[in-house]
Every structure is written in C-alpha cells, then in structure tokens.
Design a protein around this nucleic acid. Structure first.
Length: 479
RNA sequence: CGGGGUGUAGCGCAGUUGGUAGCGCACCGCGUUUGGGACGCGGGGGUCGUAGGUUCGAAUCCUAUCACCCCGACCA
C-alpha cells in the first residue's frame, strides 16, 4: 500500500523522487529558481556525509582552507577550455556599492582559477610541494532545469585542489581520492555501489587532462555521477603561472589536481535505497538511527512505559543516534508512518503488553510491514539493535549491488544496445570516436559513463564499428 | 531558450450568467483518545500574484507584467 503523498515508483519515478524529498522534509524550493532550502533532516544527512568525507580527506594528508565566493571574471578567462565549459552557466555580479564594477565578478562555479592564482603566489620551490588543500563551499551554476539535490543552481560541496612536482604524483593523488575517499564513502557509508573509471574526452572536466569518476546506478537504471577527480595536468599551471624551482635550480610548472563531491550525493542516496513508503537510509548516514515510540493509555501506564524506556535506552547515548518520540498528541500509527517516511532504520515500540512480557517490538525500515517486525527480549536489546544496524547497512549495500549487477548488460550490436540501455547500464567493447559518442547520445540519450579500470586482457568486437578493440566502456542514460 | 500549466487562508483545492470568498487538511481551545495515519464541539486566519483598464460593482471580463511548476535541448 502506497503512502499518502508519495507517487509509486513504477507509475512516475521522477514524481516519486520529488515526493520523497517533500514528504521526508529534506528540502523545499525557495523564492529563487533552482535554489533550494535544505531542511534540517536533509542537512543532517549532509553533515554525516560531509563528516565521513572530511575525516578521510584529512587522514590522507589534506588540510581545509577557504577561498572567496567571488572571482574576477578575468581569472575565469585564463584557461581557454575552462571558460568555454563554464561560461553559459556562470552568474556575474556587475553592480555593487551602488555603482557598476570596473571588472565584473563571477560567482564561483568551481574554484580552480582563484585557487590557481593563489597557488602561483604560494609556491616557489620544490620544498613547498605538494600543496594539499580542500575547501567546503557553495558554488553556483545557472542550470536550465533543476531538481532538488540532483541539479540545483547553488549547491554545497567540497573541492580539493592540489599541486605537485610531477605528473606521476598528481596522477596518484587523483586516483587515491577516487578510491580511498570517494568510493569508500559512497560504498561503505552510503551503501551505494559504484563503477569506477576514466571519463572519455567528451565527458572530461573543462580544462582537465583526465577525469575519473564514480558512477552509481539508480533504481530506474539511470546513472548518477557521484564524484569526479581530475588530473589537470599542467593546464592551469600554465594559465596561472604556478611554477616551482627544482632541487637542481630549474624552473618547472606544477601538476595540479582537483576533485569534488556535492549535495548531489543525497540524491544518489534517495534513488538508490528508498521505496514507495518513503525514504530509506543506511544507518551510517541516518541522523536518527533508532526511534522509540512509547505506547500507553492511562497515566499509570505512561509512567511505567516511560520508566522502562529510560532504562532500556540508558546506555544508548554516544552509541546510537536515537530519539524517544513521546509526543502525546499523536497516535502510534501516525508516528510509525512519519518515521518510515523519514527513513529511520529502526523503530522500537514499547507498550504495556511488552512490559508484561519483557519484550519490545522492533521494526526495520529496510523490510517494510510485518516481515520486518519482531518482538525482541528487552534483555540484550542494545546489542540486538547494534547488530541490526550493521545488518541493515549490509543488506542495503547488497541489495543495491545486486540491482546494479542485474541491470548491467552486454550488447552484441547497436540494436541490442538500444534495447538494453533502456533498462540499465550497458558494458560493451567500444572503439568509436567522440562523434560516435555524440551520435549515440542523440539517438539513445546514453553516454559513456566510464571506461572502467578493469579493462579486458583480450580483444572484443566494438558493438558500433565492428572493429576489434580492447577498450571496454560502460554506457548509460544519466542524471 | 522552445512547448505546456498554475497563481484564491500555512498546504491542497472550489468559486456557476460579474453582485463583495468557501471546502478539506493543518492551526488554537476544551473534552474523550493512543499496539499502524483518532474523534466530537467551539474558534482564529484572505490586499484572490502584481499593475492598469472595462463596469454602479471584478477572484470572475480585457491588457500588460512577475513568479513558480512540468516536459524537451545543456550540466556536479
């Protein structure tokens, strides 16, 4: 039975997504087109994702800093490919202090340019390298069409910007971030499995040498780019004169990288796990992991139940993120519904009958309805919940992984491809050109999501050109 | 930027041939309720998106304008 206010996924997936965002109170639209208000529940999820990322970013040797929101337009113009890539979606400030500005300022769509200009000042010698900095910031890209979290005009993200002495070092950094930070958080914290690999030239970041990405599969079979890591080569170093003196007194340009993930991850989280009853959150990113709903009729029962709840939850502090829902103006059914819609992994109900039997009713969100409800002895409840949280985390990952595998297809030729790409990812030998990619996109809406790191040893026949090749590509329609 | 749609109470909507604004939910009060979205009674809440015009009179007709939503081309 579908919940009030939530469109079924198989009826209208897109509307289902909007309904989840609305009903789970993750965000709402504001007076500015494309700019959303992130509500407390949505923001709390972001904080958990952010903390997991921040921890890993720091563990891998980076430090946080902050660069300005406004960037002189001339900075943006310095890297040719970069300007071209971002120009259409940049917002400019042309007036301030009651007068026209001599030089327009752009609201950062990303910060390579202003950070490049800064690094040029900071870096003198090989002893200054590497520079390993991250910033948490908001950025703005004036998109034509927006959707909460997936594509908003303003979004929150982190952007790492590093400078290195050698290409090899920059490349290692780029890949390390992709694997040890991004894929690790998305898979192990958000329970969303990803494909990892290289982007084709067509899909590469404007101004980068190489772009790597992780791609997650949504429940409608479409891909969501969940994170990108760019080896910028010496492109920005040349544009901004980021140079250093080597140990043997030569002048060299730095090799830089940049990498980012955004609040879009919340969109991935929603579309990977949630169901027709509402949001489903993996415990590690659930702001509330356990909600306790006391049930009582009389004052006497209320006292007894609340006493039991206090005792049972006494050792939960610092161990689980939990909430006791003791609102007395709402029925049990209403509360059950509300917490389900909001994705709380475990709900515990304790009423007079439980007090008599020494039990508690424990419901798990990943298995809706009666199937996921069990009566558990109050003795050992804490341990039960601890292991149940782990189990839910694992179940969600396994389920998403299975879905991803079941919806990744091979295709023998283009006709086969067209049919398969309607249903999910298609993994094929691909020897085509950029023009071929354009054509495929025009005809099927699918693009190369990644050239996976795991490339075949043996040659195969390109599904499009028929030529033999060793290059394997994953195609999909994407968000 | 093209196509479509909507602006009336916090939210969702109704409003007939133009006659001075209503319903449901939510909210407030009181009482009864609580093991899967409780119920009764009483109550508060509106420049009808904005600006002009037609008219004795406009939510309703006309013009302009703004905003938002949805569908396509571009994108973290």
């Amino acid at each position: 039975m579908a919940k009030a206010g939530i469109t079924a996924r198989d009826k209208d997936y897109s509307q289902w997504y909007l309904d989840i965002v609305d009903q789970a109170e993750l965000s709402e639209n504001s007076g500015v087109r494309g700019c959303m208000v992130i509500k407390p529940h949505g923001y709390a999820i972001w904080e958990l994702i952010r903390d997991a990322l921040d921890q890993r970013i720091k563990e891998t040797g980076h430090v946080n800093a902050y660069f300005p929101l406004l960037i002189p337009k001339s900075y943006l113009m310095k890297e040719a490919e970069h300007v071209e890539g971002f120009a259409p979606e940049v917002a400019e400030v042309t007036r301030a202090g009651g007068e026209e500005l001599a030089e327009p300022l752009v609201i950062r769509p990303t910060s390579e340019t202003i950070i490049g200009a800064t690094y040029a000042k900071w870096i003198r010698s090989w002893r200054d390298l590497p520079v390993l900095i991250n910033q948490w910031a908001n950025v703005m890209r004036w998109e034509m069409r927006t959707r909460p979290f997936l594509r908003t005009a303003e979004f929150l993200w982190q952007e790492g910007h590093t400078a290195h002495a050698t290409e090899g070092e920059a490349e290692r950094e780029t890949l390390m971030i992709l694997h040890d930070v991004y894929a690790d958080v998305v898979e192990n914290v958000m329970a969303v499995p990803v494909y990892r690999g290289l982007k084709t030239e067509r899909e590469r970041f404007a101004g980068a040498l190489r772009t790597y990405s992780i791609e997650a599969m949504m429940q409608d079979g479409k891909a969501l780019q969940a994170g990108t890591s760019h080896n910028l080569g010496q492109n920005f170093a040349h544009s901004f004169e980021i140079k250093y003196q080597t140990a043997d007194n030569r002048e060299e340009y730095c090799w830089t990288t940049s990498w980012g993930v955004s609040t879009r991850l919340i969109g991935a989280l929603i579309m990977a796990h949630s169901d027709d009853d509402g949001l489903v959150l993996p415990p590690r990113v659930a702001p509330i992991q356990v909600v306790v709903v006391p049930i009582f009729k009389t004052d006497e029962e209320r006292r007894a139940v609340m006493d039991a709840v206090s005792q049972l939850t006494a050792d939960w502090k610092g161990r689980f993120r939990f909430k006791i829902d003791d609102r007395d103006n709402l029925s049990m059914g209403f509360k059950a519904n509300e917490w389900e819609v909001k994705g709380v992994p475990i709900r515990v109900e304790i009423g007079p009958k439980d007090l008599q039997k020494g039990t508690a009713a424990v419901s798990r969100r990943d298995r809706p309805g009666r199937e996921g409800k069990a009566f558990v002895e109050q003795t050992g409840l804490t341990e039960h919940i601890a292991s149940l949280l782990d189990e839910i985390q694992q179940t969600l990952y396994d389920r998403a992984l299975r879905f991803q595998r079941e919806h990744t297809y091979d295709a023998v030729d283009y006709d086969d491809f067209k049919q398969k790409v309607e249903q999910g990812f298609v993994r094929v030998y691909f020897d085509g050109t950029g023009e071929d990619e354009d054509r495929i996109k025009a005809e099927t809406k699918a693009t190369v999501r990644v050239l996976p790191f795991e490339q075949p040893k043996q040659e195969g026949r390109c599904f499009l050109t028929g030529r033999m090749t060793k290059r394997l590509a994953v195609f999909a329609r994407s968000y």
